[in-house]
């Protein structure tokens, strides 16, 4: 099971995570040997400059973002990264004057660990925000589906087709593109498979959605016209015996497509938010 849930996070954290582990092992092996540590002032300064840059970029991201959660969480994470950087500076300072200092080495390890944890928290915060953006696009599609159930007349259907071509199609294309892209980013095979399956379902159901509304509206329209043109009781007889079945079937068909699409979109939103394989397995089990 992969440790990191996206390839980007994995590529950024995995190498340094391994190096931190190696540093810990070496420290444990040579804890009592009194090894001399080289002057780490320069590499520590480079870390500090990189952290300063991240703090600037992070605050800039917060100021331009409309995501309240990101704006709230990001500054706290930046403080953690800054504190880790300060700890590394202190460690380097201590080791410069006392190259054998065990405490200096412990501070170095702690600083490296905190950097790793801080960057991990930062990447997760940022990633969750990116996921929320995709979720919003999915929610737009869901909102459009809610309108579909209200279509009763040919005029409303014509309006919907006009609006759907104008609004729904681009949103669906965008959603499909973003979910596809996200799928390639995920490290968990099960997450990828579930997302792909649900997205394919939505793509398959989209053309059926328009046709199912079309059939429903046409059936209903035919029924209404009969009421207008012939005797009420005769019309009722035709509707019940001949047309009633068609209308009920068309409603069921329309509702099935809408519900299925809504379920799949809900599933996409749910899977997008998962970060560990356990979540999926647990939910599948439930």
């Amino acid at each position: 099971m992969p440790v990191f849930h996206t390839k980007t996070i994995e590529s950024i954290l995995e190498p340094v995570a391994q190096q931190v582990s190696r540093l810990v092992i070496l420290h444990e092996e040579s804890a009592d040997d009194g090894d001399l540590m080289p002057d780490l002032s320069k590499p520590v300064q480079i870390v500090k400059s990189a952290v300063d840059n991240l703090v600037n970029v992070g605050h800039e991201t917060c100021s331009t973002s409309t995501d309240d959660l990101l704006r709230n969480e990001m500054p706290q994470v930046l403080v953690r990264v800054n504190q880790a950087s300060a700890l590394l500076i202190d460690a380097a300072q201590m080791l410069k004057y006392e190259p054998c200092s065990i405490k200096g080495r412990q501070m170095l390890i702690e600083g490296a660990r905190y950097i790793l944890q801080g960057i991990s928290a930062l990447l997760l915060t940022f990633d969750e925000s990116e996921v929320r953006k995709i979720g919003i696009v999915c929610q737009h599609v869901l909102n459009h589906l809610a309108h579909v159930e209200k279509i009763e007349t040919i005029e409303q259907l014509v309006d919907f087709v006009k609006v759907s071509v104008k609004n729904l199609t681009p949103i669906l294309t965008r959603m499909s593109k973003e979910v596809d892209l996200r799928t390639t980013e995920l490290t968990h095979v099960i997450h990828r498979q579930l997302l792909t399956r649900s997205l394919e379902q939505v793509k398959t159901l989209t053309p059926l959605l328009i046709s199912s509304i079309n059939v429903y509206v046409t059936s209903k329209h035919t029924g209404d016209n009969i009421f207008d043109s012939i005797h009420f009781y005769l019309a009722l007889y035709i509707i019940i015996i001949v047309g009633g079945h068609c209308i009920v079937e068309s409603i069921e068909n329309r509702d099935y497509v809408i519900n299925k699409m809504s379920d799949e979109l809900g599933e996409i939103i749910r899977i997008l938010q998962l970060t560990t394989i356990d979540d999926v397995l647990l939910n599948e089990f439930d």
């Binding site: 950024i12 540093l23 040997d33 001399l36 540590m37 080289p38 590499p43 870390v47 991240l54 992070g58």
Partner: peptide, 29 residues
């Protein structure tokens, strides 16, 4: 994204720092 690049710079820099610290210890070991 700028933030990912900035995060990568830090892990690269931290990697170089740890490398400097561990290579010295390895030599001694």
């Amino acid at each position: 994204e700028q933030i990912l690049e900035a995060a990568k710079s830090i892990t690269n820099a931290a990697g170089a720092l740890i490398s400097a610290a561990t290579s010295a210890q390895k030599e001694i070991a």
